[in-house]
């Protein structure tokens, strides 16, 4: 079973990370899911693949009533992002899935109906969670061609999807980055290969540098907090991406 860690709380406004399942088979990539709650509503960010649904569901339901989930935010179209969609919809068929317009007719292959999807335009949009405004921030080509991060201005938390992801070796499973220099080695190969455009990366770095971010939360690996957020942005800005070695 996955564990839940509350990484931000202010009244009923919470960010909960759903992470690290020791029983997960090794052939499945490890993923982080995040739940944002505000008022009585919840938004599940990148809910994960169908095979890890039981682990995510059980962890989430220990903190929050799953039938009160108002929506799902899917950063992009990959199976580890939202192939569990049909299972979540069994709990609340009226739940909305917010996703790039580009994937609006692809993700329904995982489940849902025409009413399920709210298409996010390329320039991004605001999502309301019981009055809390969350911003879908464009991160196209990083790595998916229709890709969004999610920014919570109040919590100063940015869900960054695959940006900042690290494939951590066994034993290195702390929730937050503890030593940036040693951590970033596990992120380098991933970013060089998966991020497709230096131009897109440049624009993203410029955009997020201007935002107030206390925590940068990737879908794989550990969370960057405090000074490590800007450290990561600087590192990413310098990195040459879209490269296959060998």
């Amino acid at each position: 079973m996955k564990t839940t860690k509350t990484i931000f709380q202010e009244g009923n406004h919470k960010w909960i990370a759903i992470v690290r399942d020791p029983e997960k088979p090794n052939y499945l990539i490890d993923t982080n899911e995040y739940l944002v709650t505000h008022g009585g509503q919840g938004l599940l960010i990148d809910p994960g693949g169908a095979e890890i649904f039981p682990a995510v569901f059980s962890a989430l339901s220990s903190e929050f009533d799953p039938s009160a989930l108002a929506g799902i935010f899917a950063s992009h179209q990959d199976p580890d992002i939202c192939s569990s969609l049909a299972l979540w919809l069994e709990f609340n068929p009226k739940m909305r899935c917010h996703v790039s317009w580009l994937w609006g007719s692809f993700i329904p292959h995982f489940g849902g109906t025409a009413e399920t999807f709210t298409m996010i335009p390329d320039e991004g949009s605001d999502l309301s969670l019981d009055g809390l405004m969350l911003r879908a921030v464009p991160a196209h080509y990083l790595h998916s061609s229709g890709n969004f991060n999610l920014y919570d201005k109040v919590a100063k938390v940015m869900f960054s999807g695959d940006i900042g992801a690290a494939l951590l070796p066994p034993g290195e499973d702390s929730l937050f980055v503890e030593n940036f220099d040693s951590h970033i080695r596990h992120a380098e190969g991933f970013h060089r290969r998966w991020m497709g455009s230096n131009e897109a990366k440049r624009r993203w770095c410029e955009r997020v540098s201007q935002m107030e971010i206390d925590m940068l939360c990737p879908q794989h690996g550990a969370i960057y907090q405090g000074a490590d957020v800007q450290r990561f942005i600087n590192w990413f800005d310098e990195l040459q991406v879209g490269i296959v070695s060998g």
């Binding site: 649904f53 039981p54 569901f57 059980s58 009533d65 069994e90």
Partner: peptide
């Protein structure tokens, strides 16, 4: 789907998955 829901029901402390 049932296999995954069953696992969820077994793992959930409050058994919210059972009605589903």
């Amino acid at each position: 789907h049932t296999r995954l829901l069953r696992q969820a029901a077994e793992m959930s402390p409050k058994s919210q998955a059972v009605p589903v």
